[in-house]
C-alpha cells in the first residue's frame, strides 16, 4: 500500500467536499478517480499534496502520516502532481521548468552558488543531465531552450509531467492529463502513462473524465459522488454498477441505459473549470 486515506473529510463552509473517504492505492498501479463535476476529486488531490488540510481523517504515505505537513515537505516525500489547467512556469524555459522540479535533489548551499565551488558545478551538471534525460523520455528533446509558454498544448502537458517526474516521485497525481486533447494526443498520453508504470515503476493516481482513457488504462477505478465513494473496482465492474450510472445520468436512467454508460460521460471530457 503506497497511499492510504482514512476517513478523510473536508468541508468548505456548509458544503461537504469529501466525506469519510477511504482510499487505498497499491504500488505500481494506475488508479483512476472518476465522478461528476464537484464530486471532490481535485479536493482530494489538494488534501494529498498538502494544499488543503482535511478536517477529519488522515492520509498515509507508506504507512507514515502526512496530514498536516507543508506542501513542500510532502513533495520531498515523493508525491508529485500536475494540474487540471496547465500551470507551468510560463515565462521560463523548458529546461528551467524541469530544473525547478529537481530542486529537492540539487544539494549545495548559498556559498557554493556564490563562489561556484566544485560542488556547485558537479550538482548543476548532474541536474542538467537528468533534466535533459527526462525531456528526451517525454519526447521534448531539442526544445530545452524554448520558453514554456510557446510550446504546443500537448507539449505543455508533457512538460508538466516531466517537471513532476523531476521530483523523482513515487506517487504521481495526474489531474485530467488528456483534457482538451485530440484523439491522437490522447492516444499518446495513454501510452505515456502506461510506460511510466511499466518502465519506471511509478504509481499513478489519475483524475479523468474521458471514459475511454479510464477504461483503457486503469487497474482500479474509484467513483466519487458528492464527496462520497459510491463504487470501486476493476473498470468493467464499475461500468456495470447501477449506482455509477445513476450518478452520471441521474435517477431513472439506470433502469435501461446501462449499455451506453461508457459513452455518455464523454460529454464531460471538455475541460471544465472546476470539479
Amino acid at each position: 500500500m503506497l497511499l492510504e486515506a482514512r476517513k478523510v473529510t473536508k468541508r468548505f463552509g456548509g458544503v461537504v467536499a469529501l466525506s469519510d473517504l477511504d482510499l487505498q492505492v497499491e504500488e505500481q498501479t494506475i488508479h483512476s478517480i472518476i465522478g461528476p463535476n464537484g464530486a471532490g476529486k481535485t479536493t482530494f488531490f489538494n488534501c494529498v499534496t498538502g494544499f488543503l488540510v482535511p478536517d477529519e481523517g488522515e492520509i498515509l504515505l507508506d504507512s507514515q502520516p502526512i496530514t498536516g505537513l507543508r506542501p513542500d515537505q510532502i513533495a520531498r516525500l515523493g508525491i508529485a502532481r500536475t494540474y487540471q489547467t496547465i500551470r507551468l512556469f510560463r515565462f521560463l524555459t523548458v529546461l528551467d521548468n524541469v530544473l525547478i522540479g529537481l530542486h529537492p535533489h540539487v544539494h549545495y548551499g548559498i556559498l557554493d552558488a556564490v563562489i561556484r565551488s566544485r560542488r556547485y558545478h558537479r550538482s548543476e551538471r548532474a541536474a542538467a543531465r537528468e533534466a535533459r534525460e527526462l525531456l528526451r523520455y517525454l519526447g521534448l528533446a531539442g526544445k530545452e531552450f524554448v520558453v514554456a509558454n510557446n510550446l504546443s498544448y500537448g507539449d505543455q502537458r508533457r512538460l508538466e509531467i516531466a517537471r513532476a517526474l523531476a521530483l523523482r516521485p513515487r506517487l504521481l497525481l495526474l489531474d485530467e492529463p488528456t483534457a482538451g486533447m485530440n484523439p491522437y494526443e490522447t492516444g499518446q498520453m495513454i501510452t505515456l502513462i502506461r510506460r511510466l508504470r511499466d518502465e519506471r515503476g511509478m504509481t499513478i493516481l489519475l483524475i479523468e473524465h474521458d471514459m475511454k482513457v479510464v477504461m483503457n488504462i486503469s487497474d482500479l477505478v474509484t467513483v466519487l459522488d458528492f464527496g462520497e465513494k459510491i463504487a470501486e473496482g476493476k473498470p468493467a465492474e464499475v461500468q456495470a454498477n447501477p449506482l455509477v450510472i445513476e450518478a452520471y445520468l441521474g435517477r431513472g436512467a439506470a433502469s435501461g441505459l446501462g449499455t451506453i454508460a461508457a459513452q455518455a460521460p464523454r460529454d464531460e471530457s471538455m475541460p471544465n473549470a472546476s470539479s
Partner: peptide, 28 residues
C-alpha cells in the same frame, strides 16, 4: 551568481507561481 543557481531558480518559481513552487518541494 544567485540568479544562476538553484536558489535563483527557486525564487523565479515563486515569482511565477507560488503554489506550484511549493508543490515542487521549494520551501517558500
Amino acid at each position: 551568481r544567485l540568479r544562476d543557481s538553484r536558489i535563483g531558480r527557486a525564487w523565479m518559481a515563486i515569482r511565477e507561481d507560488e503554489d506550484v513552487a511549493q508543490a515542487m518541494g521549494i520551501n517558500r
